[in-house]
Design a binder for these strands. Structure first.
Lengths: 205, 205
DNA sequence: CCTTCATTCTAGCGCCGCTAGTGTTGTCGT
DNA sequence: ACGACAACACTAGCGGCGCTAGAATGAAGG
């Protein structure tokens, strides 16, 4: 049994060090940008040598993917909070959309890890897709009451695309900075009200 | 006058070589991906040594930016053709949107250069913003007849965001591949018909 | 106390973007 | 026609990157 406890202790320490790596990578990226996140720098940050990184992750991409997964958990939590505290369906969608945009704006490095880098996130295994599906799920649940006859999945994906496109174009300087709120309102209007009749209560016709 | 002609010949040859560099970079990226576009490889491709690249461009980023500018000219031409050959306003927007999505799908490396890489494109000088503004202009003109009371600029930016978000999420595997057409249709519906009454002719209410 | 084995570290490989200094080539005045 | 010279492209190399093989180290078990 002595052996067992030693093993479990080592496993625990190993898991802690893995969290340390991911957290250090995220913080370094958020403070100095992903360019500053090199394996040498990251090793120095966690006070270990480079090769230990590779005993936890297959490579730098895998570390960034782990950071991205954390990011998906974060944004999912933000959207859940926004959705569950809203007063009605329309407000819920607006708040979730705002939460999404705020997340992308306030944590650009993390958002980049989630969408620009880390393209090959595991989609059909382990924990990774869980956080991702949870984030998408929040968008879907916010959209559900407003979907009407449209396919909920497709509608949510399209709305997601609208949000994602706006925040990415915004961050690369393609859109006028002052128009941010207006565009979000416009997007929400277009997805809060179904075009084919059966309009929402807050629209005068 | 002899001096003059020699100078002009050199300038012409220089300009040709610059085109050669940009074209080689684009083709290499489109055939083998941007990872394969290294300065050494590119130099080999154009049959010059590395330093000549730096006599034309400040660095690799500038070369990618030049490729991106070409891309904006391309996509603008595609959208213009789609728009001017459409039968009506709704069809025009649909065709322009389809042209945009097709471009992103068929030339992913080029699209990446335009939006993912090359973040610091010159926005207020020379020729670069011209192609970019031309591309945006096609979207705007397609949107104009359908803008109604909404701010045209903001509406176009929002629609653009929708398109851009869909194609980028699609390419990174975040969206169901089979839902592509459905999402595009959904997006077009939401932007073809203004939500507050005054519905379009092709919608039964 | 010593063996053994897992684990961590040192050192280095091939490649990257980029540049300083050298060599060559072609132009122009005499 | 030819030599001076300026412009230009090349060779060679710098520092840093992701990643890894093999040496060194430290703890567990006999």
């Amino acid at each position: 049994m002595k052996v067992m406890s030693v093993q479990t202790r080592r496993e625990r320490e190993r898991a802690e060090r893995e969290r340390l790596i991911v957290t250090a990578a995220r913080e370094l990226a958020e403070t100095e940008g992903w360019d500053a996140v090199t394996t040498r720098r990251l090793a120095e940050e966690i006070e270990y040598s480079q090769p230990v990184l590779y005993s936890h992750f297959k490579g730098k991409d895998a570390i960034m993917a782990a950071v991205a997964v954390d990011g998906f958990a974060d944004i999912a939590a933000s959207m859940r909070a926004a959705r569950t505290s809203a007063t009605g369906p329309h407000q819920a969608l607006a708040d979730v959309g705002a939460a999404y945009a705020d997340f992308a704006t306030r944590r650009p490095a993390l958002y980049d890890a989630m969408f620009t880098h880390a393209v090959d996130l595991p989609f059909a295994t382990t924990e990774a897709p869980l956080a991702l599906q949870e984030a998408f799920g929040q968008l879907r649940e916010a959209m559900r009451p407003l979907a009407g006859d449209d396919d909920l999945e497709a509608l949510t994906e399209t709305f997601w695309g609208g949000l994602h496109g706006l925040v990415t174009l915004m961050r690369s300087g393609r859109l006028r900075p002052e128009g941010r709120e207006g565009r979000l309102t416009l997007l929400l209007d277009r997805f809060s009200h179904r075009p084919a009749g059966d309009g929402p209560p807050n629209v005068v016709r």
